[in-house]
Nucleic acid binder design. Structure first.
Lengths: 126, 126
DNA sequence: TCATTGGTTAAGGAAGCACTTGACTATGGG
DNA sequence: CCCATAGTCAAGTGCTTCCTTAACCAATGA
């Protein structure tokens, strides 16, 4: 069970969906699928071709990717074609970027502080 | 078990470490810890304070974060202080950014193609 | 010295995940 | 019609994850 995200003003909510996106991306097979789908839509068996695993296994990965919104698929005739849904990828990237910029802002503040008043080290800052 | 990443020239390798980073970030508790640590180094029990779980559980999360290089910690006296290691965060962000830019480049190419020669829809492009 | 604070270790359990096999359905070409 | 192709469903297995409790150790402050 995750944690109750503290709802902070003016911050994106990311309501629980980050769990599933990062979880989906935590598997090399699924990342390989994403990398393939980025180059264009493709059928399930085409997705499966380079992977050394059974078709049901591939299907299950596709389902994970669909469940978190990273991929959308549609069946026409007997072939299911998968395409990527870049928005969710973006959501994950945004969270990461937000952490990085927070970090950088903090470093800046720290630098300013030390320049203004050297000799008084920040609490546990380094 | 993941997949053998095809080593592509001039592409970052990310050798297997992405598995562990994304896995680490797939948990709300651990993301909350990262968000806290971004604001500055902190002890384990400080990390634990807002979380409704036992200290050993918190320790285990810290260990996961350390194992993938997201966090580094050092024990002084009886208190272990954790600090964030932003490089690995960056690695994950880079992978995401790479996918996004690939996607955008593809869209551009597609746009150009359709402008040059409308009436010949790309294979499965929409 | 002795209780408290801060952390660590070990063991175990419930749930989830990645994968398999086997059986089955439906589409489409010859 | 027949067979191959493309996918789907169900069940099961072994491994991992998240969390718990209980016992324990080591610094610290009164």
């Amino acid at each position: 069970m995750g944690v109750d995200q503290p709802i902070v003003k003016d911050m994106p909510n990311y309501g629980g969906s980050l769990d599933r996106v990062f979880q989906a991306l935590a598997d090399g097979t699924r990342r390989a699928m994403v990398e393939r789908l980025i180059r264009g839509p493709v059928s399930v068996s085409e997705l499966a071709r380079p992977l050394e695993m059974s078709l049901p296994a591939v299907m299950q990965h596709v389902q994970v990717l669909e469940a978190c919104g990273l991929v959308r698929s549609e069946k026409i005739g007997r072939v299911r074609t998968c395409r990527i849904e870049p928005d969710v990828l973006r959501t994950a990237e945004d969270w990461l970027a937000e952490q990085r910029t927070s970090w950088e802002r903090r470093l800046d503040r720290l630098g300013d502080y030390l320049l203004d008043d050297p000799g008084t080290p920040e609490q546990g800052s380094l």
